[in-house]
Design a binder for these strands. Structure first.
Lengths: 370, 370
DNA sequence: TCCGGCCTTGTGTACGTCCACAAAAGTAGG
DNA sequence: CCTACTTTTGTGGACGTACACAAGGCCGGA
């Protein structure tokens, strides 16, 4: 009972990497621990000779400092600013936020202050307001859920100027220099949707694709990339499918309903619909309301409404890009950067595209909620 | 609509929790820090009165001790024994091992020694040998990948006796008391396979199911549970499908090949095959070798061979249960138990069943390899 | 040469916990 | 009431790092 632990010193033959301490490095380089510390933290005021000697010792020993003792003596806290579209519980950005908070819990023994700078993803002025406030908040690091291209580039330029690290979730914006990004390959998503639609829809039936209405021409538009992936799938799959395109309006539900019903009246051969955003449930509910049962809908994101529709069968499949994991890992990566002051090598992480159908829905719910 | 987004903690959007220290608890309870420490670590020699006062203070403040300072001053190390089937890189248990090692890296600042006790999952004697050696190794905790029921129960009884915590990955054995388990709902897996097979196989074609040959009648047999799930799917899906059953032998490849070709000769209507273990690639390769192209194979696990077949199209879909995550989380949970000496509430974790097809294969590869 | 100022380096304390050991309180027997 | 012993409690050093501050070295100008 009392001997179910081992003593660190007396390893029973197993070799254990011995921890190299700052003092060891200092001794090797012929300087004091303080100098090593200054180099490790880029605090400046170090001669070229000392720096060289210490860096040699560091790389020879493969020194990695002890995160625990580091955290113990760390005086300064960090301030994390999260600039993402308004997070609604049970929807996409709400799930991202879950992941963010989950990660912060893991670091609850370090002083990390976290501020949200939400913006309306359909309103460029709201985004500008929000992003303008970020520098005033004096962040140590920023997590960005980008929608508008030039606003984001502007923000990143400022952050770069002050050496403030930032990470992207959901979408990656060109012309920026993030520490790390978590996103999905939207083109591959489109292909996957194509494949699923193809599987679920009878061979002789038609297919329709619903995207969002474009808002401004500056938006980083995941839907459009998904669309081209979907088209690629159908142009290479060997089968001949007729593909109709349409849009749904987010703003006006009554309008949408009329549009959809009219569209289906005009295209009775359509038996499969791809909805390239998270609003598949809207179409599913409209069709249910009109007693239409034999439509196969594929949509995106495991939101509460989509979950309901997958369970009831009014949506055939949903593709999900692990928003929670995106938030979680982005925060962890950015905190690691703050602590260790090193950039990771592989900055772009692509999340898997989970395929969720009625049969495997339950296990995903457990993962994505909580 | 406007204000149902998540407010983190307080109105200013900041989240910071103040650390309650052992000294604070000691002061509140009118004892010294040493006494609090003894209670926290069940070191005994504490009067009932002190214990009561301290526990009151602990629960009032919601005290949670600082993992970093704890780790800094922790003298003892831990020894983790991993009792799983022999891990081969790129196969199921190899991926579990990846996850285990990944988790150990996260705790590289704590002294954790890790020993593997591999066994041959097809040989009950090998399992006995391996499990018999475990107590001698004086583990602080054990991670078990169980195959044989009574051997596992025996091991767990011994572990329980000495109060050594253990966790299950992949399968859960009845009559044991693990700290935590990571596994999949095999019945739901079976249903999902059924659904996929149904989608991929033309409506008028027949379907076959290949399980493993049973080895001994004591084995925890995932295949059998998957089989019943699959049957459930087809008995409730409304369609009429003819389902044939067969087995594949792991031992003798030539024998398997003959069996399969004979089977398909006798059942030419079969155009879809579910392989309820990870050996879908064997069948896929045999069929490819015989020039058979129009078979839809669904199998399990993202092994290197299955990945190759999904990419080439000879396997239509694979279901994967995140072996890496299972290993990863099991280790993290067990280490948390060792550190905090508390049991988690929800011991059974079910992993999602990822559906992998050609179109979404690449992103999963990145996740599961690395 | 001396002085002030800047650049560089070394030193010492604090962080919160663990744990060994010392001290104190309690108990029992004579 | 004293001694011997057990149970309970308090105390201080150690862990490895961060950072403030003091101290030393170097340089140019007077």
């Amino acid at each position: 009972m009392s001997n179910n632990h081992i003593k660190p010193e007396n390893s029973t033959g197993k070799s254990m990497a011995k921890q190299v301490k700052i003092k060891d490095i200092a001794e090797m380089a012929g300087v004091s621990a303080g100098t090593v510390d200054r180099i490790l933290h880029n605090r400046g005021n170090v001669s070229a000779a000392s720096r060289e000697a210490v860096e040699k010792a560091l790389s020879e020993t493969g020194y990695r400092y002890n995160i625990h003792t580091s955290a113990v003596s760390l005086k300064k806290g960090y301030k994390l600013v999260i600039a993402i579209p308004t997070a609604v519980k049970g929807e996409y950005w709400g799930t991202v936020q879950n992941g963010i908070e989950h990660a912060l819990e893991e670091y609850s023994d370090i002083t990390i202050e976290c501020e949200y700078a939400f913006y309306n993803q359909f309103d460029i002025y709201s985004c500008r307001n929000s992003f303008d406030s970020i520098m005033e908040r004096k962040p140590s690091a920023v997590i960005i859920g980008a929608t508008f291209v030039s606003e984001t580039v502007l923000l990143c330029t400022k952050l770069d100027k002050y050496g403030i690290p930032y990470a992207f979730v959901d979408a990656v914006i060109e012309g920026t220099d993030p520490v790390v990004t978590y996103s999905s390959d939207q083109n591959a998503c489109g292909k996957t949707v194509g494949r699923l639609l193809d599987l679920f829809t009878p061979e002789n039936a038609g297919i329709a694709v619903f995207g969002s209405r474009r808002i401004g021409n500056e938006r980083a538009n995941n839907s459009m990339v998904r669309m081209s992936g979907l088209m690629e799938y159908f142009s290479t799959c060997g089968k001949k499918r007729e593909i109709k395109e349409s849009k749904i309006s987010v703003a006006d539900p009554d309008e949408s309903e009329k549009d959809i019903i009219r569209f289906l009246g005009e295209n009775p051969e359509v038996k499969g619909i791809a909805v390239l955003n998270s609003r598949g449930y809207i179409i599913a509910d409209i069709l249910s309301g009109h007693g239409i049962q034999d439509m196969n809908i594929i949509s995106f994101d495991l939101t509460v409404n989509n979950v309901r529709c997958v369970r009831s069968g009014s949506i055939s499949a949903v593709i999900c890009q692990r928003p929670e994991q995106q938030g979680f890992h982005a925060v962890k990566a950015i905190i690691r950067t703050l602590l260790y002051n090193i950039k990771e090598k592989n900055v772009h992480h692509f999340m898997p595209m989970d395929i969720i159908i009625k049969e495997n829905l339950n296990q995903y719910r457990e993962i994505y909620s909580e």
